[in-house]
């Protein structure tokens, strides 16, 4: 079973190591999020222009960053899984998809809620929000394809191809949406990014960004362990583990 295990560590090895990291990740993630929340809600001053609605930024911007970051990680892991037949890379790739989709959905919802006080409408065809919406469709496409194929190994390799094609198209889509947006919206620069950033506003933003990254690692490891258990259900170590639990 050489080719099966020649990747980083054997699934059993991965299962145990990931299991030991999870509590620490959970703790660090909780602490960081609470600290970020405190910084964002209490320390950060009221913005002279937007009042306090800008505080939504501390959720919206990090989740938008995460939605793109996770897609790239998914495509990279998928590529590694395809090229070197590393089973663990496939597992990481497919476990990342639902998390990425959640962050994209979160970015969309908080973006539109933030838009309401600023522009008075729930949805505005802003370049960033539109790209985010298309990214959500890309995620849903990956998850739908994975669900549609019965054999798990084939499904993982097919979704890896789709993720790679998607990641190549993301910059093209983003550029074309920017082009489209400047045509129809005119040059009003929609300051969706951080407003003139005061250091006390920057801290919670970065803290939340790190907290979300830790959160991603935490949940992807939890899902990956699950997928490994499912795929290795005939292995002796899984049988013993099931007996023990």
């Amino acid at each position: 079973m050489l080719r099966f295990f020649h990747q980083l560590g054997s699934p059993k090895h991965f299962y145990r190591i990931a299991g030991s990291w999870i509590p620490w990740l959970a703790a660090a993630c909780a602490v960081l999020m609470l600290y970020g929340l405190y910084q964002g809600m209490v320390v950060a001053p009221t913005d002279y222009q937007q009042g306090d609605s800008y505080r939504i930024m501390f959720i919206h911007v990090p989740s938008a960053w995460m939605s793109l970051f996770i897609y790239v990680v998914m495509a990279a892991a998928g590529a590694i899984g395809l090229i070197w037949h590393m089973k663990l890379a496939e597992v990481i790739a497919i476990s990342s998809a639902p998390i990425g989709a959640s962050f994209t959905f979160l970015a969309l919802i908080t973006g539109s809620i933030w838009g309401k006080p600023m522009w008075g409408t729930w949805w505005v065809w802003d370049a960033r929000l539109t790209s985010e919406l298309i990214l959500l469709f890309l995620y849903l496409g990956v998850m739908a394809l994975y669900g549609a194929i019965d054999d798990k190994r084939t499904a993982a390799r097919a979704t890896a191809i789709l993720a790679i094609v998607g990641v190549v198209n993301i910059p093209i889509i983003h550029y074309s949406v920017e082009w489209w947006n400047t045509l129809h919206q005119g040059p009003t620069v929609t300051k969706f990014g951080a407003p003139s950033i005061d250091i006390r506003m920057l801290i919670p933003l970065l803290v939340m960004a790190v907290a979300f990254k830790l959160f991603y690692v935490l949940v992807v490891l939890m899902r990956a362990r699950l997928e490994v258990l499912e795929r290795e259900r005939n292995a002796r170590w899984v049988r013993e583990l099931v007996e023990a639990s």
Partner: peptide
């Protein structure tokens, strides 16, 4: 090619392909 083996691949085909058509549509 990704959905050729599926029984009801047509539905998923549009979800996979339409987002990738957006740049062509825009330009």
């Amino acid at each position: 090619a990704l959905t050729v083996g599926l029984r009801r691949g047509g539905v998923i085909l549009s979800l996979l392909v339409l987002p990738l058509y957006i740049p062509v549509l825009i330009f």
